[in-house]
Write a protein that binds this DNA or RNA. Structure first.
Lengths: 246, 246
DNA sequence: CTATTATTGTGTCAAAATAACACATTAAAA
DNA sequence: TTTTAATGTGTTATTTTGACACAATAATAG
């Protein structure tokens, strides 16, 4: 694959916070960089004939092998100091062994994108600059490259805000799921527990779920019903929001 | 002042949708461009040592002579076709009479910012490229330059969304205002009328207003009380949102 | 100076939404 | 077959919302 700086728009990069949900934990896909071994968000640059969204979708497809993903800009990161790379990396670049990397010495603003994906469908693939691609739960994320910790934090804020006025779950849940599983997703994102019965009443009132006749057997105890999202209504709710407010 | 392309970050521009409120109308500050006489949003570029927010604040200060403004990124516009200027302008640039303007032939992604300002405090000032700066109410905006109509529309969407989960009004209203005036702002942004009594009850329940002992005399009929925002609570509400949702 | 007018201040009541809580049901495991 | 623990499905009190009515008053008209 390689990397040719001149294929891309200057000064602009993008970083993707890819959220997945597994074992009642919210996870983020991270890359371990070659040479420096720092952890970083999957990212990329915008090609000359691409929109930012298209560029992000390309990155996502390459890193997760999943297409059709929920993807959203949430903020531009533009602190002039943000792309100051660490001195060791700088030395490495200037040694001349890695000519491609001069590109990285320039200033970039980065467009923060967040994505919600079905954990079970992802095959994580490192990129040209990284040696490993790994899901990490939120509390396992240590110090990340550049300002990536800030980007993750802001993405999480956005997700928490979104959940209070838009539906969430499609793209994060498998196709069929149980009510307790969906509740667990909400609890994880919100960081608090919810009343089981009130949760069900409220989420059903949004009219975005279809109850299936099947139950999910195999777990101990009573078998919960399976649900799936009603895509049509879900998309409507995404556009119109869940609450009028006024 | 002039304009030196090399002072700025490449490929990145910003466009500001500056909202003001006057005579029960939401207004947007527009510039009439020299040479082409097209109407456009105030915009600018990011200097080498600036954040995007600082650049926008600088633009705002220069166009409105008001500092301390509510300012927020809301979206990046990155359609590769978006900066295709109209052919007449292109001819003008290529004629060589305006050497500065070659810069504008390149592709830019634009960061959409929206700002809320106190209409009464603004002194609108055109920039180096424009001959006139004028407030236009939403229905007076005709066809704007490039994709600026889209940018205005998306800014308005964002504002309408914001109003349903965050307080609005500080920076848009004068320091002291009456309840009917505030209601009028809400009605204008939402594009619908609200019940006077229910509006008052709800907005007071947010605990962001302080009722003053004075009334606003001078208008015919009963004199309405004056209110001001309780900044402390207002800012809390901005951060936390007005509704839990969950 | 008084009556009129239109707008504001304030309150009530029914309906809807929410929060708190309890008991019956059932798949798997003991 | 019994036990266990999680799920399905209410009920009730409280809070919030929506719809509405009447009293108070600053300016204006007569």
């Amino acid at each position: 694959m390689g990397f040719n700086a001149r294929d891309y728009l200057e000064s602009v990069s993008l970083d993707c916070v890819i959220f997945g949900f597994h074992n009642s934990q919210l996870k983020v896909l991270l890359l371990k960089m070659k040479y420096t071994h720092e952890w970083a968000l999957p990212g990329g640059f915008v090609k000359q004939n691409e929109t930012v969204e298209e560029a992000a979708a390309r990155v996502l497809r390459e890193r997760t092998s999943v297409g059709d993903i929920f993807l959203k800009q949430f903020r531009v990161f533009s602190d002039p100091e943000r792309s100051k790379i660490n001195p060791a990396v700088k030395d490495l670049i200037e040694s001349g062994d890695h000519p491609d990397m001069e590109w990285f010495e320039k200033r970039f603003i980065s467009i923060g994108m967040y994505a919600l994906v079905d954990f079970t469908k992802v095959i994580a693939v490192p990129d040209y600059f990284s040696e490993e691609a790994v899901w990490k739960s939120l509390d396992e994320i240590g110090t990340l490259m550049l300002d990536h910790n800030l980007i993750v934090q802001k993405a999480l804020n956005t997700l928490r805000l979104q959940i209070s006025y838009q539906p969430i779950g499609y793209n994060l849940m498998p196709e069929k799921f149980t009510m307790p599983e969906l509740q667990s997703l909400y609890e994880t994102i919100l960081g608090k527990t919810l009343d089981r019965r009130n949760f069900q009443r409220k989420i059903l009132s949004f009219d975005i779920l279809t109850k299936l006749p099947e139950t999910k057997k195999g777990g101990a105890h009573k078998a919960p019903f399976l649900y799936e999202f009603n895509i049509e209504n879900y998309k409507k709710a995404l556009e119109n929001g869940l609450y009028g407010g006024w």
